[in-house]
Write a protein that binds this DNA or RNA. Structure first.
Lengths: 193, 193, 193, 193
DNA sequence: TATGAATGAGGATTCATTCAT
DNA sequence: GATGAATGAATCCTCATTCAT
């Protein structure tokens, strides 16, 4: 379950909703407090500052998101199945937690440099992990040799970008279908002859 | 040439630099004025408000970016060549106008709904154009039939995402090499057989 | 009592003093806050804007002023006594609440049209009330028939104008004497032969 | 004729129109320049500052207004006729030069103290003149003895106040009728027996 | 622990005034 | 003289943060 029911989670939930709707800067701490049904001062009992709140939100959200990714990738099965599961889980996340997704996508700019670096590294580790996985799949003969770094970026890029469409526009599609379409093209591009 | 030397361009240039560095909200109009070497009031002689300034920046930047796209796509040549040229131009844009790219990528959130819609439609038209081009290429036997909408999104998504890496991280690579890598994988995924 | 001691009244009082001294436009919100001994932000906790502050000031002041008028007019007694009481109360108000009077007299220009209309109607109702009272007094044989509308305006006009002198100049006189003088002339003008 | 056609008068005329419509503070120098059909800098060729412009406007307008008053009062004829002429001229002025009247009535607040004093003295001299005239009329047996100072203020007060109604509300009436009504009541109040 | 009244630093915007052309 | 582009002081208002209750 994404949300607990304690006060801290209430606040986080409210913040995700409002930051997603109106952006970090256009949301006031007072609004978050109201949405969460607590007093303004209470927010400061759980988060040192508005910035800190966003930091924790992004940590929470990306942990949740990336944990899923590694869980799938480290499981058993062929690469193609893994990619399809990843894609499906990605779109499921964007569909179910549109608010969280929007905050990850758009508000990571308003974070301090050190957290920004931390996030970039987190994504970089994912890219590296994927790159390595692709390399191994190539060595195992599952796919043909390509520029693994670029291919890894393509995969994540496609996912983020289609996810972004989900988040900002009214573009709709079933998770399975979208995941299938993407992996179909990617796989054709990667598979051995 | 991207920049003229009149006062309006000086201000736009300063704004691109600062918005890219620090974001729209963290940049004050006074800072833009200083960077441009003009008085605060002068900025308001050219732009009705800070918002309006961002609007015009985004119009300018996306016009510049998309014009290039259509110029290439409507030229002669096979699909693969076109895709490579598009990709190369894309990365050239991101390398040369990092500031502009960062503003397009990250600050489009801080725009009013009507401009947001306008931008989304602009990108949507590009997707549709690409989709149609892919369909025609398939009919002409250049590529195999796929989900053209998804494929179009994959292509643009890959470009944006790799471009985003260029913009925010220190990831580097030659425009030709990056373009080649991406199109290589995409083309394998699309080509007949 | 005109003034309570809560924070809202402190601010109103400070605003009356400063607006009266320097006018609405020449008084800054910061000055009002300082005079009231509160922070600038506190003012905005009680009044949505500087305009809104003036609106509420005028509502408050004119309510206070007009309530007194109707209280007297609806009491018992002959017309002449009523007019004298009205005049005396009018001057008492101007003497005691010079600040408030100055704001009523001079700052009603800086209000939005709707409040302006509201104020004009308030005064219009008073004129009408007075006109009707004069008419009844004429029917009762207390005064001779005249143009009641013009007479009503003369009375209020005389009061406002002499009051204005009190407010802007150093012209001084006892409330009783001024009221007596005015009503003496008016009454001679109105009384039956 | 009130208006000449030279550039200075064009500007004054425009200023009267705009100050009357929107008040001194809500009118910008640029607007005055546009309305007058000249450049912004040109205004400063004729008036040292916006303040100075208002000063000269008020001097011009009050000179015009008071000159008429003294012209009538110093002419031949009985007091009653003079009062009626004064009243008629007063309302004619307010009807014909509503803009000018509104500026006199409402914008005299935004003037520096020295000019304010000058205006107050101007009106004071008029009051004194009227007071003296009333006194002489009393000695000549034209009217009964009253408090001449108060009576003088009543007359001017009635005129200003009814004039103010003309200026701000839609209250209408023929100059002759209004003048007649006022003087009728006043005269009854003043006349012997 | 929870609250929200109070605060004031910070920033967008306006506009009277100047001055080079 | 006439002009209007350029200027920046001045001011309204917001909102993150604190702290007494």
């Amino acid at each position: 379950m994404l949300w607990s029911t304690d006060k801290r989670s209430q606040i986080l939930q409210a913040a995700f909703k409002l930051f997603a709707q109106k952006g970090f800067f256009h949301t006031t701490v007072e609004e978050v407090a109201q949405e969460a049904g607590v007093g303004k001062g209470t927010v400061y009992g759980y988060f040192a500052s508005k910035q800190e709140m966003l930091h924790q939100m992004l940590c929470f959200a990306t942990d949740y998101y990336f944990d899923k990714f590694y869980e799938v990738m480290e499981g058993n099965g062929g690469l193609r199945e893994k990619l399809e599961t990843i894609a499906r889980e990605h779109f499921r996340f964007f569909n179910r937690h549109k608010d969280v997704a929007r905050v990850i996508l758009f508000e990571h700019r308003h974070i301090t440099d050190d957290l920004g670096d931390w996030l970039i590294q987190k994504e970089q580790r994912r890219i590296n992990f994927l790159e390595e996985t692709l390399r191994q799949a190539a060595e195992a003969g599952e796919i043909r040799p390509v520029d693994y770094q670029v291919a890894a970026r393509m995969i994540t890029g496609s996912l983020w970008n289609v996810g972004m469409e989900l988040a900002i526009s009214s573009f709709q599609g079933s998770e399975r279908q979208m995941a299938g379409g993407i992996v179909d093209v990617i796989w054709s591009g990667l598979k051995k002859e």
